[in-house]
Deep mutational scan, measured.
Amino acid sequence: MTEYKLVVVGAGGVGKSALTIQLIQNHFVDEYDPTIEDSYRKQVVIDGETCLLDILDTAGQEEYSAMRDQYMRTGEGFLCVFAINNTKSFEDIHHYREQIKRVKDSEDVPMVLVGNKCDLPSRTVDTKQAQDLARSYGIPFIETSAKTRQGVDDAFYTLVREIRKHKEKMSKDGKKKKKKSKTKCVIM
């Protein structure tokens, strides 16, 4: 069974824990209790493949930012979460993405942009803004509501699919490099 290491990042209060708990335990946590770091595991079937999701729910508070490099190193894919009623959390996505790329030393890291709290009427981040940002990053965008469960499975499952595509691409690139290195030079 394939294991996928997913990391949920975003500013404090955007609903990272609520999304994760909704996926794992099928219930909505409405009281806000700032996370330092929590880890969850769940076995699911995605596109006919049974897999184990190892999900790291991270601290959004700035005082825990020193811990970010460590979990970013171990993560295979990242859910970059903002709240649709919090423009600052949307603007912060850029910083999370840049930090992930720096730590992973790669421009090509599996990510999904997630606009959470889409059940709320007080939207300050337009869907088109988020779609445009995701398009500019070359990553999928999904709106979710941890409260109603809308888009929750889709967000995590899409990230797994992005990781699969990335692994497939990397193995193809690896095979191309191996083929090239088999060419021999004969000096007579």
Score class of each variant (00 low, 15 high):
99 Q>G: 06
126 D>L: 07
108 D>E: 11
93 I>Y: 01
106 S>D: 09
111 M>D: 00
63 E>H: 02
66 A>Q: 10
70 Q>S: 09
125 V>M: 12
93 I>G: 01
97 R>K: 07
82 F>G: 15
115 G>K: 04
81 V>P: 03
118 C>K: 07
117 K>E: 08
72 M>I: 13
91 E>A: 04
125 V>R: 09
70 Q>L: 07
116 N>G: 09
82 F>N: 02
123 R>E: 14
87 T>Y: 09
64 Y>W: 09
84 I>M: 15
108 D>L: 05
104 K>I: 06
78 F>N: 00
113 L>I: 09
117 K>T: 10
83 A>T: 05
110 P>S: 03
72 M>L: 11
70 Q>K: 13
115 G>L: 11
79 L>F: 08
95 H>P: 00
68 R>A: 13
82 F>T: 12
70 Q>E: 14
90 F>S: 02
95 H>W: 13
93 I>K: 02
75 G>E: 05
125 V>G: 13
66 A>K: 08
72 M>C: 07
123 R>H: 12
82 F>C: 13
81 V>I: 08
73 R>P: 08
111 M>K: 04
102 R>I: 05
68 R>Y: 07
111 M>G: 01
87 T>L: 07
75 G>L: 06
84 I>H: 15
111 M>P: 00
79 L>T: 00
75 G>A: 15
99 Q>F: 14
90 F>R: 03
86 N>V: 01
105 D>F: 02
105 D>A: 10
101 K>Q: 12
117 K>H: 14
80 C>P: 02
74 T>V: 07
116 N>Q: 14
80 C>Y: 10
98 E>C: 02
90 F>W: 13
105 D>P: 06
108 D>R: 05
98 E>F: 01
102 R>P: 02
73 R>W: 07
109 V>L: 04
71 Y>Q: 15
120 L>W: 09
73 R>T: 10
73 R>F: 04
99 Q>P: 02
65 S>K: 06
122 S>P: 09
92 D>F: 05
79 L>C: 03
102 R>L: 08
124 T>Q: 12
77 G>V: 12
68 R>D: 14
63 E>C: 03
110 P>L: 03
84 I>N: 15
68 R>E: 14
71 Y>F: 12
103 V>L: 15
118 C>S: 11
86 N>M: 03
125 V>F: 12
110 P>N: 03
101 K>H: 04
84 I>G: 15
98 E>L: 02
76 E>D: 15
67 M>N: 10
76 E>P: 01
80 C>G: 04
96 Y>V: 12
80 C>T: 04
68 R>P: 14
87 T>W: 05
96 Y>R: 01
95 H>L: 05
93 I>R: 00
77 G>I: 12
90 F>N: 00
116 N>S: 14
123 R>F: 10
70 Q>R: 10
70 Q>W: 07
77 G>M: 09
115 G>T: 06
80 C>D: 02
103 V>E: 03
108 D>W: 08
111 M>F: 09
79 L>A: 03
84 I>K: 09
122 S>Q: 06
125 V>K: 12
88 K>M: 13
105 D>H: 09
94 H>S: 08
99 Q>C: 13
121 P>T: 12
115 G>S: 06
69 D>Q: 05
89 S>R: 00
70 Q>M: 04
88 K>F: 03
100 I>G: 01
114 V>P: 00
69 D>C: 02
121 P>G: 13
121 P>I: 09
81 V>D: 00
120 L>M: 11
114 V>D: 02
91 E>W: 08
81 V>N: 05
97 R>W: 15
117 K>V: 14
115 G>A: 13
83 A>C: 04
118 C>F: 11
101 K>F: 14
104 K>W: 11
113 L>H: 02
67 M>R: 09
109 V>R: 03
82 F>Q: 03
107 E>T: 08
81 V>W: 02
63 E>F: 02
106 S>F: 11
108 D>P: 07
93 I>C: 01
88 K>V: 04
69 D>A: 05
95 H>S: 05
112 V>L: 05
93 I>E: 00
71 Y>H: 10
77 G>E: 01
120 L>R: 04
104 K>M: 11
115 G>E: 05
99 Q>H: 08
117 K>S: 11
113 L>A: 03
124 T>Y: 10
69 D>F: 00
99 Q>A: 04
73 R>M: 08
101 K>V: 04
126 D>W: 08
79 L>Q: 01
65 S>A: 08
66 A>T: 10
110 P>W: 02
114 V>R: 00
94 H>I: 04
101 K>P: 04
87 T>D: 11
78 F>G: 00
114 V>G: 02
90 F>D: 00
92 D>L: 05
107 E>I: 15
87 T>F: 06
117 K>M: 15
117 K>G: 14
65 S>F: 05
84 I>W: 13
123 R>K: 11
109 V>I: 11
116 N>Y: 02
80 C>Q: 01
115 G>Q: 05
96 Y>S: 02
109 V>E: 01
124 T>D: 13
78 F>Y: 08
126 D>R: 06
100 I>Y: 00
70 Q>C: 09
100 I>P: 00
70 Q>T: 06
68 R>W: 07
68 R>L: 06
121 P>A: 13
122 S>D: 14
88 K>G: 13
65 S>P: 13
116 N>I: 11
66 A>H: 06
87 T>A: 14
78 F>R: 01
82 F>Y: 12
70 Q>V: 04
107 E>S: 11
115 G>F: 15
64 Y>Q: 10
74 T>K: 07
111 M>Q: 00
74 T>C: 12
79 L>H: 03
73 R>H: 06
69 D>E: 08
101 K>N: 07
116 N>T: 15
125 V>N: 11
82 F>P: 01
97 R>Y: 15
91 E>R: 02
69 D>I: 00
67 M>T: 14
64 Y>R: 13
95 H>K: 15
110 P>M: 03
88 K>Q: 08
72 M>Y: 10
119 D>E: 10
71 Y>W: 08
75 G>F: 10
76 E>Q: 11
74 T>D: 15
68 R>N: 15
110 P>Y: 02
101 K>A: 07
107 E>K: 05
119 D>P: 02
114 V>I: 14
75 G>S: 11
64 Y>I: 12
72 M>N: 06
63 E>A: 02
117 K>I: 15
84 I>Q: 15
105 D>I: 03
66 A>Y: 10
118 C>E: 11
82 F>V: 09
126 D>Y: 08
67 M>C: 07
64 Y>V: 14
